[in-house]
C-alpha cells in the first residue's frame, strides 16, 4: 500500500492501549473499544506488533472519521496514534 506515515514528535497522549502480541482482528477491535473511553480531540496511543495493523488502523480511521496521526517504530513494537473525531 502507501508509504508509512510517521507520527510527529511531542504528541500528548490521553490513553495508551497495549496490544502487543495480539494478532488480527484483536488489535483493531480493542482500538475501537478503547477510543470510546477518550474525549473528542484527544489522542489514543496503541502499542502493537501485528504488521497487519499498519493497514487496518489507518483504514479504520478513514472509515470511522478519526484522524490517523501516524506511527513510530519503538524497540520491538510500533506505536500508532489516533486522534478521536
Amino acid at each position: 500500500m502507501s508509504d508509512i506515515k510517521v507520527a510527529p514528535d511531542g504528541l500528548e497522549v490521553a490513553r495508551t492501549l497495549d496490544a502487543k502480541g495480539l494478532s488480527c482482528p484483536m488489535p483493531l477491535l480493542r482500538t475501537k473499544k478503547e477510543i470510546e473511553k477518550i474525549n473528542s480531540g484527544e489522542i489514543l496511543e496503541v502499542l502493537g506488533t501485528d504488521p497487519g495493523s499498519r493497514n487496518d488502523i489507518p483504514g479504520w480511521c478513514a472509515r470511522a472519521g478519526h484522524e490517523y496521526l501516524g506511527e513510530k517504530e519503538d524497540d520491538g513494537f510500533i506505536r500508532f496514534y489516533v486522534k478521536k473525531k
Partner: peptide, 20 residues
Amino acid sequence: YIYWEMEHITWGISGGKNID
C-alpha cells in the same frame, strides 16, 4: 463471541511480548 469476550474476559489479555 469476540465482542462478548472484550466485555467479559479480563484475565490474560495484555502482556504480549515481541522478540525481534
